[in-house]
Design a binder for these strands. Structure first.
Lengths: 147, 147
DNA sequence: TATTTTTGCATCGTGAACGATATAAATCTG
DNA sequence: CAGATTTATATCGTTCACGATGCAAAAATA
């Protein structure tokens, strides 16, 4: 009984880890045809909301560091989704802007969120339960991200 | 307004993705001194609960595929935490068993779960909210994993 | 203004995830 | 029992996530 807390079943983190993996996996059928990955989709969401942002702003938004985001953006530049130009006011910055290809992808990606929600709901009934998840996750994220 | 659903803020998945990353990160202060990673810790939890399991059982337990688990186990074997021996009844199987080092690590890892929960609670108050998370995540996981 | 500190970005190395593919052993089926 | 199928594991390639480190530009401070 001493080791009870060690039991895998009791772990909240394992469920988060697994749920996150599976959720990202659920995007695959929708993202594969567009030729992008889930993290790349997140970058596009940020840029669709506001084009031309420095790397650091994108990183902040995604709560990632530049050592993750930079290579991600480099791959996306390579596949023609965006451009990275030198900043003018602050020359340290790299301003990321969508290409034609990156911009038009928005139309094709338009229905992904509803498809995904529908997909998940079909398999687990209640909408309420999912929506209650969000504020709790927000608190958790806020707690864990402050340092 | 047409693109409203695309907005990052509305995305449940992004929160899961972020919460999972940050939660794994919260294990670092406890796992680094033991020289193991979070996925390796998960493998150890499984083996501490029951030693000597074939690769596929461990994979099933963690809801991962062998192409993820095999290299993970190889690294753990390399660092002396476990052994992988040929199965006797089924020669295709590789039976994974803990070494002395892997076994004794259990003592040192004993307090990790309580430390982590305490750590999280300190930063976000209510226990109830966290505990309500678990069954919902379970449903989500179950829904997404069935195919 | 000179020096220090901070900031923005990049590179490198390691460990995961995971799709695709391969191989041998076990199992099923005709 | 022979051939087909499934199962258990492994390998390879790509993309991430992230700690450590480096560097130049900007900002702060002396």
């Amino acid at each position: 009984m001493e080791y009870k807390q060690l039991k895998l079943n009791n772990q909240l983190c394992f469920r988060l880890y697994t749920a996150a993996r599976l959720t990202v996996g659920a995007y695959h059928p929708y993202l594969d045809p567009l030729g992008i990955t889930y993290p790349q989709y997140l970058v596009l969401l940020v840029l669709w909301e506001q084009n031309k942002q420095p790397v650091c702003d994108i990183a902040k938004r995604l709560m990632l560091d530049t050592n993750t985001v930079t290579p991600l953006l480099q791959r996306m530049e390579k596949s023609g989704l965006l451009r990275r130009t030198k900043g003018k006011t602050d020359t340290r910055q790299r301003i990321v802007s969508l290409t034609e290809k990156g911009t038009t992808l928005r139309e094709q990606a338009k229905h992904i969120p509803e498809c995904l929600i529908a997909n998940i709901l079909e398999k687990m009934g209640s909408v309420e339960e999912l929506t209650t998840l969000v504020p709790t996750l927000d608190k958790l994220i806020e707690g864990l991200s402050e340092r």
